[in-house]
Design a protein around this nucleic acid. Structure first.
Length: 430
DNA sequence: TCTGGGGTCCTAGGACCC
DNA sequence: TCTGGGGTCCTAGGACCC
């Protein structure tokens, strides 16, 4: 029996593709989707890439270019992408016994005991099905390890030999053919090699996937550590990374945002951090965890180098650990009280929940205060709040501390409708 | 005017202990 | 002439991912 095969399936230009499903006017034009606060490009259509717009490039830098090319700039519509992702992942799940959802637009599949299958043909059917049922284009790469599946996926999407098919299986290639392709892949395009390591590898004369594959493992281990050595071994077909079908419990939860405008007002900071504490709390309860410590952090705008900079943080212990938004907000306020200073223009604030542990294994207190006596009622209250917000939209029910006006909220000037998750925004076919 | 947010893992070094 | 060695825990920083 041959060893298992891995596939990596991912959505092409995922956020842009999600938008295009519901807005045919975006077809054939340069389109970019901006990060939160309408900051930088996080997704680009092929036409936008052809214009030279880079990943992470600030929106204001490309506005003119995009306008001249009849292009479109959109705010990110995260609830739309999350919903489209769920649909896409569900369709893909029907094609393999094991699936690891790796990010909003990618998943790994593992095929063990599929010796007599034509996985490439299988992947083509998968691709067609996803397109038909969700409207989303995906690419598929297949290989004996996750790293090789990633590399094959890259070929499937970028290489002229594969682009039109959208599927690439390394198994279909003779070793010499594989080497030819590997030689064409830049070393920083390998999964696990970023720009820093890429530069260091190049300094050692290792510039392509082929050269890393053929490098001396002990040298790589010594200079780059165990992670890179694993990458090297995976490139050589030795599976070092397993499929994680069930996501491990989170170790920390972060909720943070940049402000729409610079903030000098203490009340605004308090409202914002209360809002982030509530967001983090909601995620915490969804994970069925409780937090033993909360950290609040603030920051000025590091791009304004002439302004005084201040990036404080405060850690507030939560004893006993909690998943109650009211307590998280109280802790966040205490944190802000400790670090807030007048005279700075703040750009960003956030809340981190740390020391997470399963909510049902919380250690009892020897001397329980009135707080604990109410724990049962509190957790029922939070359930109701979460339920209402899930049904009626985030913020339908919220704590007064989060503020009403929320003038500090991030910019989302170019937001598309909630096509799939809001009744009022359902597209109408006529 | 204008530059995101949310995560993980590894390593080195210091403190502390025996 | 000449200052041990090893283990654990914690933290900060650096790298990576999407």
């Amino acid at each position: 029996m041959t060893p298992p095969r891995y596939a990596l399936v991912d959505g092409n230009n995922f956020y842009v593709s999600c938008e295009r499903v519901f807005a045919p006017r975006l077809e054939g034009r340069p389109v970019i989707v901006l990060s939160n606060n309408d900051g930088c490009a996080v997704a680009r259509s092929e036409e936008a890439k052809a214009l030279g717009i880079r990943m992470g490039q600030p929106g204001f830098e490309v506005r003119g270019l995009l306008q001249r090319a009849n292009g479109v700039m959109l705010s990110s519509n995260y609830s739309l992408y999350a919903d489209m992702s769920r649909r896409m992942m569900a369709v893909i799940a029907g094609f393999a016994p094991e699936q690891e959802i790796y990010s909003i637009d990618e998943c790994f599949l593992r095929f063990a005991g599929f010796d007599h299958w034509d996985l490439e043909a299988h992947a083509r059917r998968l691709r067609k099905q996803v397109r038909q049922w969700t409207g989303l284009p995906v690419g598929v790469g297949i290989g004996p390890t996750k790293t090789l599946a990633k590399l094959a996926n890259r070929l499937a999407k970028k290489h002229p030999d594969y682009r039109s098919i959208g599927v690439c299986s390394l198994d279909a290639l003779a070793p010499s053919q594989q080497e030819g392709y590997f030689a064409e892949v830049a070393v920083e395009d390998i999964w696990g090699v970023g720009s820093r390591w890429g530069a260091k590898l190049r300094a050692l004369g290792i510039a392509s996937a082929l050269e890393l594959k053929q490098a001396e493992p002990s040298l790589i281990r010594r200079r780059f550590g165990v992670v890179m050595e694993r990458t090297l071994r995976e490139l050589n077909g030795l599976a070092c990374l397993s499929l994680e079908a069930a996501p491990p419990p989170k170790q920390q939860i972060i909720a943070s945002r940049s402000f729409g405008q610079l903030v000098t007002d203490r009340t605004a900071i308090l409202e914002a951090t209360a809002t982030y504490a509530a967001m983090a709390g909601e995620r915490l309860r969804r994970e069925r965890q409780a937090s033993g410590a909360l950290q609040v952090f603030l920051g000025t705008n590091p791009f304004l180098s002439k302004e005084p900079q201040y990036h404080p943080a405060a850690l507030v212990p939560l004893s006993p650990p909690t998943d109650d938004t009211a307590r998280l907000i109280r802790a966040a306020k205490a944190g802000v009280a400790a670090i807030w200073r007048a005279g700075f223009r703040y750009k960003k604030a956030g809340v981190m929940l740390l020391e997470l542990a399963p909510a049902d294994q919380r250690q009892g207190l020897l001397f329980a205060g009135p707080e604990e006596d109410h724990a049962e009622r509190r957790s029922r209250l939070m359930e109701v709040v979460d339920g209402l917000n899930a049904r009626m939209g985030r913020g339908a029910v919220r704590f007064a501390a989060e503020g009403l006006e929320q003038a500090w909220r991030m910019r989302r000037d170019k937001l598309t409708p909630a096509y799939t998750t809001g009744w009022a925004s359902l597209p109408v076919a006529s």
